[in-house]
Write a protein that binds this DNA or RNA. Structure first.
Length: 463
RNA sequence: GGUGGAGUGGCCGAGUGGCGAGGCAGCGGCCUGCAAAGCCGUCUACACGGGUUCGAGUCCCGUCUCCACCUCCA
């Protein structure tokens, strides 16, 4: 049995067969950098980060493309409000996204193209569409895709153009031939900065959102590629339009469509419009990045993830359990790629990345390891730890990779001091002077240092 | 109006008709000088009403409720 993925174009779980065996091309719709990332944004990135890790672990060479949309209406509007250059605002937010991705341990994408760097490729694509009769120029710098020229339009989301609610934007786009026609190129407007438009054979303007992704996907992954991924909310119109453009231009485009569910609060989608966005930077001020990663990765990628006040503390408790076991047993130098993964874990991951089921195997392994440790079977415990780490590594959660060493010199000094205290406590306990022993422990606990006794001695950790 | 998703125990969250998901929290126990950690056990479930079946959270029909996309959205 090998990987099966839910393809949202066909609404079915399909065996995953790459176009070229052993090689996988993935295009993930990345951020429109108009604001710093909230946890919904990084959930999407994390979901497909795990996909990449699993594909690599199972022997595939993966090319991962995650774009940055660095120009759009909102970026221009916000920059204008703030009295800032649009590109300065975009870049500041791009940096914030990169910082969040790095903090959460995402593997870097193979390519991370920016829309503004690919205008020539977009122009080429537009020319192709105009030549083939699938796009028309309505005015200087104004180019539309002609949905009626493409009979397959609506195939991705199983909708028919005639049944769609007429959009509000249908009325202002007087130059459109059909309300569902969408912009490939938007004409430069007088009040917009000169730097926000480019010359094209059709006039001056800037790219429409959908066109960017089609052009960049083709540039880095070729005419046909394996997987196109993104948030569920992008299915329509964005992904429908991308597919229509690319296929109308004669390209095979994506073979599988994967869409992640979003983060909800009280059942409703998290988003700026609802004012319930939780920024990554805010949460990371209070919680270890691995804990946030665990919380966001532990739910099936295409389910909604309900965020509650307990989510982070639950994740923290579980993470502590995993990390402290590994800390007590693991050999940090081991080659995890060489470790055989439990069958049940593999089966769960192959089943459209059923991470909750995979985590059940992780917890079984953890329990077996703790039992071995308590029984003094060090070798068995170490073996469990190795398997545990190999599984967690697939999820980007190997605790040894997340250990917070901090300042090594300060840590060494602290160790000497705490060990001295623990020796004094051990002496007191030996003399059955428990009030003295407890006084030492209480002082340490107050200072944020947890003490645990065991038959082989006491150990300490920063709580 | 069109298209789609969802309703599982205190919370989160899997579930491919045939014992038990898993985690967090709770309760009881073991261990401990006392703790902590760990281990063992344990209480709370499948929105509602019918039906099919030897057997249904899982299939069928109906009802209710919620969410989303069709405008920018991970």
């Amino acid at each position: 049995m090998s990987l099966r993925l839910y393809d949202s174009a066909t609404h079915a779980v399909r065996p995953f067969e790459p176009l070229v065996p052993g090689q996988v091309g993935i295009y993930l719709c990345g951020a429109t950098v108009q604001a710093p990332p909230h946890i919904g944004h990084v959930r999407s990135a994390l979901a497909f980060d795990v996909l990449v890790r699993w594909l690599r672990r199972t022997g595939h060479r993966v090319t991962m493309v995650r774009n940055v949309t660095d120009i759009d209406d909102k970026i221009l509007a916000k920059a204008n409000e703030a009295g800032q250059e649009w590109w300065a605002l975009a870049y500041a937010n791009e940096r914030a996204f990169t910082a969040a991705y790095d903090a959460l341990g995402l593997l870097p994408p193979t390519y991370e193209p920016r829309a503004t760097g690919h205008v020539p490729a977009m122009v080429e694509l537009m020319e192709r569409l105009v030549d083939r009769g699938h796009a028309y120029v309505a005015g200087p710098g104004e180019v539309w895709f002609d949905v009626r020229s493409w009979s397959a339009y609506g195939e991705l989301t199983h909708q028919s153009v005639d049944d769609m609610k007429p959009s509000s934007d249908a009325t202002d786009g007087v130059a459109k031939h059909h309300p569902a026609d969408f912009a490939l190129w938007k004409a430069a407007k007088p009040h917009e900065p000169e730097s926000a438009s480019w010359d094209t054979p059709f006039g001056r303007g800037r790219p429409g959102w959908h066109l960017e992704c089609s052009a960049m996907a083709q540039r880095y992954l070729g005419d046909s590629f394996d997987i196109h991924a993104g948030g569920l909310d992008l299915r329509f119109p964005h992904h429908e339009n991308e597919q229509a453009q690319s296929r109308a231009a004669g390209f095979g485009f994506a073979q599988y469509w994967l869409h992640n569910g979003w983060v909800t609060i009280s059942g409703s989608k998290m988003g700026k419009s609802l004012g319930n966005s939780l920024l990554v930077s805010t949460l990371l001020a209070d919680v270890a990045p691995a804990v946030l990663r665990y919380a966001l990765v532990g739910v099936r990628y295409r389910s909604m993830l309900e965020w509650t006040p307990e989510t982070l503390s639950d994740a923290a408790a579980t993470w502590e359990r995993l990390a402290s076991f590994v800390e007590r047993t693991a050999d940090a130098g081991a080659d995890l790629a060489a470790v055989a993964l439990p069958e049940a874990f593999v089966a769960a991951m192959d089943d459209d990345l059923d991470i909750p089921a995979a985590l059940a195997v992780v917890h079984e392994t953890l329990r077996a390891g703790n039992t071995a440790l308590a029984a003094g079977r060090r070798d068995d415990a170490a073996a469990s730890a190795l398997v545990l780490r190999a599984m967690l590594d697939v999820l980007g959660l190997d605790p040894t990779a997340w250990s917070t060493t901090g300042d090594a010199r300060a840590a060494a000094a602290l160790d000497v001091l705490v060990e001295a205290q623990l020796e004094a406590r051990a002496a007191a306990r030996g003399a059955r002077d428990f009030s003295a022993a407890d006084a030492i422990r209480d002082r340490l606990v107050t200072a944020g240092i947890a003490v645990e006794d065991s038959p082989t001695g006491s150990r300490w950790s920063l709580a």
